[in-house]
Simulated assay, not measured.
Amino acid sequence: MGTVFNKKELLVLLQDFHCLTGLRSAVFDSYGIEVLAYPPELPAYCRLIRSVPDGKTGCYLCDQAACRKATRQKQTIIYPCHAGLIEVITPVQIDGAVVGFLLLSHIVQGADEQSEWSYAQKCCSAYAIDKTALQKAYNVLPHTPYPVLKSAADLLALAAAALYQKGLTRLAAGSAQEKLSRYLAEHLDETLTNETICRDLSLSRTGLYYLSRQLYGCGINEQITHLRIQKAMKLLCDTNLSNAQICQQIGFLDDNYFYRVFRKQTGLTPRQYRDSILADTAKTE
C-alpha cells in the first residue's frame, strides 16, 4: 500500500462534512478503492444498483474513471455518475503526487425533480431493477442545490489540500510511491533520465510509466519538468540568483531552454515573474 491514512482523524472530517451537507463523503486510496466513508452504509438507491452485477460493475468503472480524470487534471471535478446522480471528487496530493481522493456522493440537485428522476431512471434502465422500489429509494436522497454543491466542492478541495499538512495522510515509508517521490526531490538538480531512475529504483520502464501515471497523472519527464519549474519559482521569489545559477540547482543544462520552458509553463519570463513578486511585496509593506 502506497498511502497511509489517519482514519481516526479522517472520520471526524467526514462526519463534519455530513453534518454540514447531509451528504455521504468518502476517502479513496490512489487506486480508487474506498478506504473510509461516513455514513458507512450506502443509501438504499445505491444498494439497489449494486445488487445487480452490471450495476456493481458500473459503480466501480465510474469511480475509476473519476479518479483517473481527477489525477490528470489535479483539481476538483463535479460529474454525473453512471446511475444518474451527481458526485464530487478532489485529489489528495503530496508534493504533486496524487495519493488519494475525497468524494461527496449520491447527490440530487432537486432543481427539476421530474426531469432529474427521468434521467436517473434512463441511466438505470439496463439494470432491470423494479421501478417502484428504485423511485422510492431515489425520492429519499437529500437534495443539494447547485450553489450549495459548489460551496461543498470548494470546501472539499481545501480539506484535501490540508490533509498532508495536518498529518492525516502520508506516503508509506519504503513504498514505490514514496521512493519515487523522494528520489525526484533529492535528485532534481541532476540529469534525470528514465534509464537512471529505473536503475536506481530497480524499476522496469513499464513499471515507472504506470507508477508515474498513477501518482502524477502524467509521464515522468513531464512531472520532472513541473517540479523543476516549481523550484525555480521558489528560487526566483526567495533569492537573487541569476537564471544560470538557478539552472544549476534545478537540473537544466541550458538557461535559454529554461527560459522557454518557464515561459511556457507560467506565461511569464523568469524576470517578469520575479518582478511581479517584488511588486506584490512592495504593495504589502
Rank of each mutant, 00 (worst) to 15 (best):
Y60Q: 09
L23K: 03
I229K: 00
K234G: 05
D130N: 11
R205F: 14
H143P: 02
K150Y: 14
I33C: 08
A160S: 06
K166Y: 06
K56A: 11
Y119E: 12
V88W: 08
T169M: 08
I229Q: 00
G55Q: 01
Q248P: 05
E222Q: 15
Q214M: 05
S125I: 04
I197H: 01
A173W: 08
Y257W: 09
P43D: 11
S115N: 06
D130A: 07
Y146M: 12
G100L: 01
L102N: 09
I220V: 15
F5H: 02
C247A: 03
L155V: 09
R68Y: 08
I89K: 14
G32H: 05
S30E: 15
G217N: 01
S115Q: 14
E285I: 05
F5Y: 10
K74Y: 07
A26P: 06
K74T: 09
Q114F: 12
V261I: 15
L141T: 04
W117R: 08
G217F: 08
A153W: 10
H187I: 06
C198Q: 00
A159P: 02
G84M: 00
T76C: 10
V52Y: 12
C198K: 00
I250H: 04
Q165A: 07
G174E: 11
Q177R: 11
N240K: 06
V12M: 10
K166H: 12
H106V: 03
D130R: 05
S202E: 14
T193Y: 01
S115D: 08
L268N: 13
F252K: 01
E87Y: 08
K283R: 15
E9C: 06
P145Y: 07
L36S: 14
I246Q: 03
L192D: 03
E113P: 03
L241S: 09
I86C: 11
V35A: 03
Y146P: 07
D54A: 09
R47I: 03
K234R: 06
K231Y: 02
E190D: 13
C81W: 07
Q165D: 12
I86Q: 12
Q73Y: 14
S30L: 07
S118F: 06
L184N: 02
Q223F: 11
F5T: 00
Q272G: 09
L36K: 05
N243C: 11
N256I: 03
Q121Y: 10
C247E: 01
T191I: 08
R271C: 03
Q93R: 14
Q75K: 15
S212I: 03
P43A: 05
A173F: 08
Q135S: 12
Q121F: 13
H106P: 01
G174W: 03
G167T: 00
L42G: 06
T21F: 09
Q272K: 13
L236P: 04
V99Y: 00
M233L: 04
T132V: 11
Q114V: 13
E41D: 14
K283L: 13
K234P: 02
L211R: 04
N243W: 13
L208Y: 06
N256H: 09
P142F: 01
R260L: 13
R205N: 11
K264G: 06
L10G: 14
L134S: 04
S51H: 11
L201C: 02
Y119D: 08
V148I: 10
Y45T: 08
C124F: 13
V148F: 12
L241Q: 12
A44Y: 13
M233N: 04
Y79I: 04
L180D: 03
T132M: 05
A70S: 12
R24T: 10
T266Q: 02
L253K: 13
H106Y: 13
D154L: 08
R213S: 11
